[in-house]
Computed example of a mutant assay.
Amino acid sequence: MTTPASLAIHETRDRLHELIVIDVRTPGEYAGGHLPGSLNIPLDRIQRALADIRLAADRGDVLIVCASGARSENACRILAENNITAATLSGGTSAWTADGHDLHRPEGAPATWGMERQVRLTAGTVVLLGLLLGLLVHPAFQILSAGIAAGLVFSALTNTCGMAAMLAKLPRNRPDAADLDNTLAALRRR
């Protein structure tokens, strides 16, 4: 399968006012900071939004954004399978901020952790727990640590993350149905 088209940071900055920007990170990540004017449609909800994204794509260029570019590439592939053309932001919001651009943070938004930080905390906790239980209780507990290590290697090789997919299902990382409906309504108005 081909890699989706990507826009460089400077191209995105210059065209931001004319792009339809969809952020596919979790609602918690989105609330922690997003590109100005972007709408949040989490990757696991993209199928539900296909009709509205198709209508938006008929009116303008669609840019899909995530933290690093991996989830936005997956979203672009899903859209392409449904005959919707979209590009991804090269390097995601991490590259955007590294280039000196600000992310929009709504007033009163709760402090949140990005998905990568959540994955690092969870993986580190399970590895440490496996090692400690392996030393203090029974060596078989070290299988936990080995399982996480294998999962991280697989994640790097396939550019997917099963742990992130599981963490995205936690209530803090899931959109309220009303929030998604409001987002889709806003997308229809663009």
Rank of each mutant, 00 (worst) to 15 (best):
T3S: 07
P4S: 06
L16T: 09
H17L: 08
L19A: 01
I22G: 02
D23A: 01
D23S: 03
G28H: 03
Y30D: 03
L39N: 07
P42R: 10
L43N: 08
D44Q: 14
A51Y: 06
I53H: 06
D58P: 01
I64K: 01
I64Y: 03
A67E: 12
E73F: 02
R77L: 14
R77H: 14
I78A: 00
I78C: 01
E81P: 00
T88P: 01
T88A: 15
T88M: 07
G91P: 06
T93A: 08
T97L: 11
A98V: 00
A98W: 09
G100L: 07
H101A: 04
H104N: 09
H104R: 11
E107C: 00
T112Y: 03
R117A: 13
V119M: 03
V127E: 05
L129W: 04
L135T: 05
L136Q: 08
V137I: 14
H138V: 04
A140R: 13
Q142E: 10
S145I: 06
G147W: 01
A149Q: 03
L157C: 11
C161Q: 10
M163L: 15
M163A: 11
M166G: 00
M166E: 03
N173V: 07
N173K: 10
P175G: 10
L180N: 04
L184N: 11
L187Q: 08
R190W: 04
